[in-house]
Design a protein around this nucleic acid. Structure first.
Lengths: 197, 197
DNA sequence: TTTTTTCACTAACACGCGTTAGTATGTTAT
DNA sequence: ATAACATACTAACGCGTGTTAGTGAAAAAA
């Protein structure tokens, strides 16, 4: 009877969540079964329920841990005394870095949140809406003081956020360019597309 | 016994495919059941099989009809004698327009193709890969003759294509800005982000 | 060492899934 | 009117799903 192996400071629940992220990313939340997950963890399906309450709980944990990270980051960026363009660059670099280094979680929380159940669903959608509004507000401030082209700010936010999810394709065919080069290219194109010159 | 109602020149199969697109977009391919689809069409689930071979066939049809449209379009654009930037602008305007006017199909083919089964899966992935390479080749040509910033072309393609899928959010909260404004804003930011000035 | 707690096991459940068979009804062609 | 066809129905299938109950072994605490 082999237990789920854990290094210290990593609970068995966290091991399961990590494997779940990978599986949900690969197959999608609905298509990934608890028996698949059990196999990935090295245990029988029923055993998972000693550590988690339900399949959906796994999705909650993933979505909200990612959402919280982004929320805390924008809190910090908003308070800094730098130009709007610099704030946007910081936000974008954070998005890119998260997508590069926590690929599975970020991808899943971005694509699979639809399968959350209320009240988590509304909560998550709310957080997302608020985050985008705050992002748009920064862009609008930049437009007002002529740093940024006169564009529709919410549209710009859409572009920025969705462009980052293109990093998925980079992950699929890895090592063609480095993560650093990827980041610089994305910043050049995206921030360059906003800047007023 | 109420039949599936069709206007002339629209087969019952096409009606089913259209409803399927809408349903797959809303719930995802795996989460949308044939019984859901049957209800949307106004018929019992088993009756659908008088018109289609399987659930997956619906996904094939959706994915490949979209893929074919994009392939034909890039065929035309490649042959035109215009600048690289103009070609890219044409491609992007087509992507935006398709995403605006054939939202459900395009969205589904973009997000749910993973659930295709071989040989369709490999076929689809192949087409996608080829399309992106051709897109990247246009960008590279533009870089060589200094129209376009010196960036990594495949990365630029990722950004462009994924940015367009942000139109999903525009659909969700419609009428805030017009489709035309949306298109112009996207072109300004994205094509502007490539252009060498 | 003994007791308590943690955790993995087997077995099974109720349910929803995609799909098929067989049949009846409505529509179109002769 | 009658034959042929298209299309809807009901009933059911085998299968995979998420999850629960109950049991026993290993690990941790006493």
């Amino acid at each position: 009877m082999a237990r789920i192996k854990t290094d210290k400071n990593i609970s068995r629940k966290e091991v399961i969540i990590t494997k779940a992220a990978s599986l949900f990313r690969e197959k999608g939340f609905k298509a990934a079964s608890m028996r698949d997950l059990a196999e990935a963890v090295g245990v029988e399906a029923a055993s998972l329920y000693n550590h988690i309450k339900s399949k959906t709980e796994l999705l909650h944990e993933l979505c909200f841990s990612v959402a919280n990270r982004f929320m805390h980051h924008i809190d910090e960026v908003e308070m800094e005394k730098i130009s709007a363009i610099q704030k946007i660059e910081k936000l974008m670099r954070f998005h890119i870095s998260e997508m590069v280094h926590h690929y599975e979680e970020v991808y899943v929380s971005d694509r699979e949140w639809k399968h959350l159940a209320d009240p988590y669903l509304s909560n998550y959608q709310n957080q997302r809406r608020i985050y985008r509004k705050r992002f748009a507000a920064i862009i609008e401030a930049g437009i007002r003081n002529k740093e940024i082209k006169n564009i529709d700010a919410p549209t710009a936010v859409l572009i920025m956020l969705h462009a980052v999810s293109g990093i998925e394709s980079w992950h699929r065919s890895k090592q063609r360019i480095s993560a650093e080069e990827l980041e610089e290219n994305m910043i050049t194109i995206l921030v360059g597309g906003l800047t007023n010159r």
